[in-house]
Nucleic acid binder design. Structure first.
Length: 264
DNA sequence: ATGGTGGGCAACCCA
């Protein structure tokens, strides 16, 4: 089974790119972030037309929004709280009915956190830290099993998850308070499935800013998108593919699709 | 130190 996570940065604008991604990667399940479409305006026919008879979405006007498209039957899991009581559509969960049994899938879009890495001066950074604390607490109180957590977590925790550890030390996405919190979250029941395949000493990116004249030449990337699995699913891990070429598609997202293969 | 480029959606918000 192949699961793709992708911050698509507007689902409606990039429907043709979603179709291209499906053609090239043929995922069984697609987790999207930043769909930027209210549920009532969701392109209703698109999932079925692309071969995904099952889908759930949680969107809102203008910002955020997540969706799961699936070839595999699934049911909603609505047990998680309304993170930070904001109703801001940053998480959706489902239980996939796989051939080996049910697997819980979480799709997260963690707040980006603004520019200033000081919670007193920057409410968006404070929100980000609080969000990650709350997620860590939730999984501590509700230990996950046979679970996969994916999404744009907007934190690059390891030295080689960014192009320059030194230069990004105080840049939101790579600050110590974020990394501490994310490490605690991960530790509450998950393992880093991407680093299962790529050693920590190797550079690994999923995002390249729009603000570079040549993203490939400068290669100032960060690993903001993640795939975590519970230890009971580690033996099922089969492969990882970062679809880097998607960054060169016409009208690209600044994030590229990340595919994980599991024997389920 | 600064600004660079995107999307949403109608003035700036957000990334």
């Amino acid at each position: 089974m192949r699961i793709v996570t992708w911050n698509i940065n507007s689902l409606r604008l990039r429907l043709p790119l979603l179709e291209r991604m499906v053609t090239e990667l043929s995922p069984d399940v697609i987790c999207l972030q930043e769909t930027k479409v209210p549920d009532e305006l969701f392109p209703e026919a698109a999932p079925g037309a692309l071969g995904y008879p099952f889908h759930f979405r949680r969107g809102m006007k203008g910002y955020n929004g997540v969706a799961i498209l699936s070839r595999v039957p699934m049911r909603r899991d609505e047990t998680a709280p309304d993170w930070c009581l904001k109703d801001d559509r940053r998480h959706i969960a489902a239980v996939l009915e796989t051939p080996t049994g049910p697997v819980t899938l979480h799709d997260f879009y963690v707040p980006a956190g603004g520019d200033i890495p000081d919670p007193a001066a920057n409410p968006k950074y404070a929100h980000k830290l609080a969000f990650v604390d709350e997620a860590a607490d939730y999984f501590a109180a509700n230990p996950p099993a046979r679970s996969i957590l994916v999404g744009d977590l907007n934190i690059a925790p390891l030295e080689h998850d960014v192009w320059s550890h030194k230069q990004l030390r105080d840049v939101v996405s790579h600050t110590e308070p974020e990394i501490e919190r994310m490490t605690r979250w991960l530790g509450n029941g998950f393992t880093d499935a991407m680093r299962h395949f790529v050693p920590p000493a190797e550079k690994l990116y999923t995002w390249w800013s729009y603000r570079n004249r040549d993203w490939r030449a400068s290669n100032r990337g960060r690993r903001l998108d993640h795939v975590w699995v519970t230890p009971d699913l580690v033996p099922a891990l089969r492969g990882l593919h970062i679809h880097q070429e998607a960054r060169d598609w016409t009208g690209p997202s600044d994030h590229v699709p990340v595919a994980i293969d599991l024997a389920l």
